[in-house]
Design a protein around this nucleic acid. Structure first.
Length: 891
RNA sequence: GGGAGUUUAGCUCAGUUGGUUCAGAGCAGCUGCCUUACAAGCAGCGGGUCGGCGGUUCGAAUCCGUCAACUCCCACCA
C-alpha cells in the first residue's frame, strides 16, 4: 500500500459522511438505552454558516458523538427558525430587487406565497453546510418553526395562555421601528453613544411674555405633543411658576407647569417638557397626573396632522427637527443649542432610530411564569457553564417585564384573535381567541348571543407573533410534545445539553425554561453550555463589514473539517471568547498529518511470527503495557473533562498524549531496526492501541479517525469507528508508569549529552548515569540489551553497543549517529542525587501530612479528595522507601 | 447608577475548597538538523517578583481587605 506523506481530507470526508448517513448512524428512535438529547439552536432559515455556527455546532457534535460512543441513544435534532423580522426583510428586498414588487402593493396572501417560494429556494442552506462540518444530526427530524404541527402548537399556547389570563392585549409604550413599521422588544434595540444636540427652548408664561421657562430637549419637533412642563418641587427657580400655564412656542397652546421629583435639578435647565406620546417616562408622568396624550408621529416616523403646526406636518421627524431649528430661531424661542452625547437606540435589524410609541399590543405576563424557572437555575437543577451566567440570568428574571409578543409583520404565526367587524373602529370590545376561525365563530356566537354570526362578521388580528414566541417551545414541539405527551417526548425530554450563544440567554434560554415548566412541568435541559463570541486575533468581533470573518466552507475545503474543528475548539472554553486564529487550524491539520504518518509507519512494518530476539520481545511487551496504563490515565482525565464540559482541555490533552506518548515514545520504543520485522504480538497490540486512540479522538476529529480505523485493519460491514464502544478506564499501574517515565527521563538526558558534547558519528561517548534504577530502565527501554544484570551488581561498567541499536532515535536520532556508550556509574554522584530526591520526597510527604492533619480540610473535603490525598501520601512514602533502599545498597 | 467578571511568559489561556505531580500548556521567538513515518517534521533553548499594597496562616497565584486597569450585562440619560 502506498500512502502519501500528506493526509488529504477532502475525499475522505465526503466519503465517510455519506457512509455514516447511509447506514443510519445519525438516526435515533426511543429504545432501552439511556437517551442523550440535544436540540440545535435553530439558525435563521435565511442563515449561511458563519464562524459562530461552526463553534457552536462543533461543540454539539462532539458531545453527541461522545455520547453515542458511550453507548447512549444520541439524538441531535436539527432545524431552522422562521425568524420573522429578519426573513421578512430579506423577502421584501428580494421582491424589490428580483421581481420589482413592493410589499405595500401585495395582499397578505400573495406576499406569503412569495415568502414560501423564497424559503423553498434559499432557506435552509445552512443545514446542508452543517454536514460539511461533520454534524451528526438526525436529519429525519429536521424541524422548522412554521411546520404545520409546530404552527399549531404556537397557536395553541397562545390560546391557552389567554385562557389562563397570562396573556392580554393592552396599550403600552413600546419601541417602534419606523422603517419596518413594527414593534421591537428591548432586546432588539441596540444602544450606542451618538452625538446629539440639546435645544434650549423658551416657553412664555401665559399672559406675560416677559417671564417664562426654558426647557432642554433633543427633540424640538415633539413640542406640539407637549401637555405639561415639569419641574422639581423644591427647585427655587420655578416655585412661582408651578400651577400656572405656559405657551408652546409657535402655536401658543397653553400647558400647565407641574412639579414632580422625577426631575433632575442638575440636568439641562431643570425643567422638563412632558410629551406622553413620545417618551416612556413622560408617559408614566402623564398617567400619574391624568394628562392627555397627543400623538404627533405616524407609524412611518412622519409628523401627522395631530400636530397643529402645519409647516412640519408630513415631514420625517428628522427633517422636521431641522425645520424646527429655523422656526424656533426666527420666533426667538431658541435660547441656545448645546452639543451633547447620548445613547441612541437603533433597531437591530433596520438600524432605524427607534421611536417610543404608544400602541395596542399583545403581552405575556412574565411574572406568572417566572417562579420555577428562577429556582431551577438557582438550585442548579439546570446548570450553566460557566456558572457565573446564572447571575446574569437571575438579575434579568428579577426585573422581568411583560413580554410584547405581537409584531406588525406578515411572515410568522398570525395571532389567533378575532374581532367583530361591526365594532366601532379601534374599539374592538369583543375579542375571540381561538385555535382557528371556526372556533372563533363559535365563541363569538356564544359571547354575543348572536347565533347568526359567520366568519364574514369577524376580522382576524393582522399581526404575527414574535419569533421567540415560537422558538421558546422548540424543545417540546420538535418531539410533538403537545399532541403526544406520552409519546417520544417522554423519552427525550428533558434534553441533556443546550449549547448556545450568551447573547440569547434572555431571548431564548430563559423563555424556554419558562415554557418547559409551564407546559411539561419539567426543565427543558439539564446543562446549558454558553459558547463565547468568535473574534479575530485582535479581539475584534467577526463581522462582514470588517471583512475579518473567513468563510468556514473555504477553510474546510482547504484544511479539512477535522482541522477546523480542532482549531475552533483549541481556543475556546465555556464562556470565553474565541480568538480565532488560522494557526490553530493549521495545528489541527498538522495533527491530522501526524496521525496519518503514524499510520504509514505502522502499516509499513513487516511482521514476523517467529521473533529472533527474546529481549526485544520482552521490552516491547513492557512498552505495550506502559502504553495501556497511559491510555487508562488519559481516559480518566478525559472523563472528568467531559463531565465538566472542559472540551478544549479534553482535546488538547488527547493531542499531547497521542503526539508525545504514542508517536514520539511508544512507536519509537517498539520500532524495529532497519529492515527488520516486528513480532506479531507487538504488532497486533499496536493496531489495537492505535484503534482505541482513534475511537477516543473520534468525537473531536471524526473523519480522519474513521479513515485510519479502517486502514488499520479489515473491518466487517458496519464495524465503524463512530459506533464503537468508547474505551473504559481501569485502574492504573502507577509503578509501571513510574518506571518507564523514569527511563524516558534518562533517555532524554542521554540525548542532551549527545547534543551537549556534539557527538559525531562513530564517536564514543562516556556518560555517567547517576542512578542505577534509571540506568536499568534505560537499558530496558533503549535497547542497551546485555548489561542489565551486571548493572545490578557492579558499580562500574563499560558497555559497547556493537550493532545498530534497536531504538536508534532515542540515543542518536539518526543512523549516522549510533554511538558507542560507555556507561560508568559514579557512586558519589549517585548518592548525592538520591539524597536530593529523598529530601524532595520527604518535603512532599510533610506537606501532604500537614494538609491531612488540618481538621477543617478533612471535615469539609469530599471523601474522594481526602482519599486522593491519602494515596498521594502513601505513594510518596513508597517512593521514600525505594530511595532509602537504593541508598543503603550503595553502602 | 446597579450587577457580574477579568488581571499568571511577547500572545491566548490552564492552574479543581491554601502545601512539593505548581509556577504550567499551546502559539510566537531563538539555535541546530532534509534523518529510514512525518520539514505540515525532529532535537533543544530562553522567557513570568502570578496587576500594586496590606492582612490571615507554619505555608498564599489560590482566602480576606484595599487600590488600579480592563471587559461584559442591566437600567437611565429632558
Amino acid at each position: 500500500m502506498e500512502l502519501s506523506t500528506r493526509y488529504a481530507p477532502s475525499e475522505t470526508e465526503s466519503k465517510w459522511y455519506e457512509h455514516w448517513e447511509k447506514l443510519g448512524y445519525f438516526r435515533s428512535e426511543p429504545d432501552d438505552r439511556e437517551p442523550f438529547t440535544i436540540v440545535i439552536p435553530p439558525p435563521n432559515v435565511t442563515g449561511v454558516l458563519h464562524m459562530g455556527h461552526m463553534l457552536n455546532n462543533t461543540i454539539q457534535d462532539i458531545l453527541i458523538r461522545k455520547a453515542r460512543l458511550d453507548g447512549k441513544n444520541a439524538c441531535w435534532v436539527p432545524g431552522t427558525d422562521h425568524a420573522s423580522i429578519a426573513t421578512e426583510a430579506k423577502v421584501v428586498r428580494w421582491l424589490r430587487e428580483e421581481k420589482n414588487l413592493r410589499k405595500g402593493d401585495l395582499t397578505r396572501e400573495a406576499f406569503l406565497e412569495y415568502a414560501y417560494q423564497w424559503k423553498e429556494k434559499y432557506g435552509g442552506i445552512i443545514l446542508s453546510q452543517l454536514r460539511k462540518l461533520g454534524a451528526s444530526c438526525d436529519w429525519d427530524r429536521t424541524a422548522f418553526t412554521m411546520d404545520k404541527g409546530y404552527y399549531e402548537d404556537v397557536i395553541r399556547v397562545f390560546v391557552d395562555l389567554y385562557g389562563k389570563n397570562k396573556l392580554y392585549r393592552g396599550q403600552r409604550m413600546v419601541n417602534w421601528d419606523p422603517a419596518a413599521k413594527t414593534v421591537l422588544s428591548n432586546e432588539e434595540v441596540i444602544y450606542t453613544d451618538e452625538q446629539s444636540r440639546l435645544f434650549h427652548i423658551r416657553y412664555n408664561l401665559e399672559g406675560d411674555s416677559n417671564s417664562g421657562i426654558v426647557i432642554a430637549t433633543q427633540r424640538p419637533e415633539t413640542i406640539f405633543a407637549d401637555v405639561a412642563i415639569c419641574v422639581h418641587p423644591n427647585d427655587p427657580r420655578y416655585k412661582d411658576l408651578v400651577g400656572k400655564n405656559v405657551l408652546i412656542p409657535l402655536i401658543n397652546r397653553p400647558i400647565p407647569v407641574i412639579a414632580d421629583d422625577y426631575v433632575d435639578v442638575e440636568f439641562g435647565t431643570g425643567a422638563l417638557k412632558i410629551t406622553p406620546a413620545h417618551d416612556p417616562n413622560d408617559y408614566e408622568i402623564g398617567l400619574r397626573y391624568g394628562l392627555p396624550i397627543i400623538d404627533t408621529i405616524d407609524d412611518d416616523g412622519r409628523i401627522n396632522d395631530a400636530c397643529t403646526y402645519q409647516p412640519i406636518v408630513g415631514m420625517d421627524r428628522f427633517d422636521a427637527r431641522k425645520q424646527m431649528e429655523t422656526a424656533l430661531e426666527e420666533s426667538g424661542s431658541l435660547v441656545k443649542i448645546e452639543e451633547y452625547t447620548t445613547s441612541i437606540g437603533r433597531s437591530e435589524r433596520t438600524n432605524a432610530v427607534v421611536e417610543p410609541k404608544l400602541s395596542l399590543q399583545w403581552f405575556v405576563k412574565m411574572t406568572d411564569l417566572r417562579g420555577p424557572a428562577v429556582t431551577a437555575v438557582e438550585d442548579r437543577d439546570i446548570r450553566f457553564y460557566p456558572d457565573s451566567m446564572k447571575n446574569m440570568y437571575r438579575s434579568w428574571m428579577d426585573g422581568l417585564r411583560d413580554w410584547c409578543v405581537s409584531r406588525q409583520l406578515w411572515w410568522g404565526h398570525r395571532i389567533p384573535a378575532w374581532y367583530l367587524k361591526e365594532d366601532a373602529r379601534g374599539k374592538e370590545t369583543f375579542i375571540f381567541v381561538a385555535q382557528n376561525e371556526e372556533e372563533a365563530v363559535a365563541k363569538a356566537r356564544i359571547e354575543t348571543g348572536n347565533s347568526a354570526l359567520t366568519a364574514a362578521d369577524l376580522r382576524q388580528d393582522e399581526d404575527v407573533l414574535d419569533t421567540w414566541a415560537s422558538s421558546w417551545l422548540w424543545p417540546i414541539s420538535v418531539f410533538d410534545g403537545f399532541n403526544k405527551p406520552d409519546g417520544e417526548i417522554k423519552y427525550y425530554y428533558p434534553t441533556n445539553v443546550l449549547v448556545t450563544a450568551p447573547e440569547i440567554i434572555f431571548f431564548w434560554v430563559a423563555r424556554m425554561i419558562m415554557a418547559g415548566y409551564e407546559y411539561m412541568g419539567e426543565k427543558p435541559f439539564q446543562h446549558v453550555y454558553f459558547t463565547g463570541i468568535v473574534r479575530d486575533a485582535k479581539r475584534r468581533k467577526m463581522s462582514k463589514s470588517l471583512g475579518n470573518s473567513p468563510d468556514p466552507l473555504d477553510i474546510i475545503a482547504e484544511h479539512g473539517a477535522d482541522a477546523v474543528r480542532y482549531g475552533m475548539l483549541s481556543c475556546s472554553a465555556a464562556g470565553n471568547d474565541v480568538l480565532f486564529d488560522m494557526k490553530m487550524v493549521e495545528n489541527g491539520r498538522n495533527f491530522a498529518n501526524k496521525l496519518w504518518n503514524a499510520l504509514r509507519l505502522v502499516k509499513g512494518w513487516e511482521v514476523t511470527e517467529t521473533p529472533e530476539n527474546e529481549s526485544i520481545e520482552r521490552n516491547n511487551a513492557l512498552a505495550v503495557r506502559w502504553m495501556r496504563e497511559k491510555i487508562n490515565k488519559t481516559l480518566l482525565s478525559l472523563e472528568s473533562d467531559f463531565n465538566s464540559f472542559r472540551l478544549s482541555e479534553a482535546m488538547v490533552g488527547l493531542y499531547g498524549f497521542i503526539w508525545d506518548d504514542f508517536c514520539a515514545w511508544y512507536l519509537e520504543m517498539i520500532k524495529p531496526g532497519y529492515e527488520k520485522p516486528i513480532d506479531r504480538v507487538t504488532y497486533e497490540a499496536t493496531l489495537d492501541i492505535f484503534g482505541d486512540l482513534m475511537v477516543m479522538l473520534h468525537p473531536f476529529m471524526p473523519f480522519i479517525t474513521e479513515e485510519i480505523w479502517h486502514q488499520l485493519r479489515e473491518r466487517a460491514q458496519g464495524e465503524d469507528c463512530m459506533i464503537q464502544p468508547y474505551p473504559k478506564a481501569s485502574s492504573v499501574d502507577e509503578a509501571l508508569v513510574f518506571q518507564v517515565e523514569t527511563a524516558k527521563d534518562v533517555i532524554a538526558n542521554v540525548r542532551d549529552l549527545r547534543n551537549q558534547y556534539q557527538i559525531k558519528p562513530k564517536e564514543v561517548l562516556t556518560v555517567a548515569i547517576q542512578d542505577s534504577a534509571s540506568a536499568r530502565a534505560l537499558y530496558a527501554q533503549a535497547g542497551l540489551r546485555e548489561m542489565v544484570e551486571k548493572l545490578a551488581i557492579t558499580s562500574s561498567l563499560e558497555f559497547v553497543e556493537t550493532e545498530q541499536p534497536n531504538s536508534r532515535s532515542f540515543i542518536a536520532g539518526t543512523e549516522n549517529y549510533y554511538v558507542e556508550l560507555n556507561l560508568t556509574i559514579d557512586v558519589v554522584a549517585e548518592r548525592a542525587k538520591l539524597e536530593q530526591e529523598l529530601e524532595y520526597e520527604r518535603g512532599f510527604v510533610r506537606s501532604v501530612e500537614g494538609k491531612l492533619s488540618n481538621e477543617r480540610f478533612v471535615a469539609n473535603a469530599k471523601a474522594e479528595i481526602v482519599e486522593a490525598e491519602r494515596k498521594k501520601l502513601s505513594d510518596g512514602q513508597a517512593r521514600i522507601k525505594i530511595l532509602e533502599e537504593s541508598l543503603a545498597k550503595l553502602g
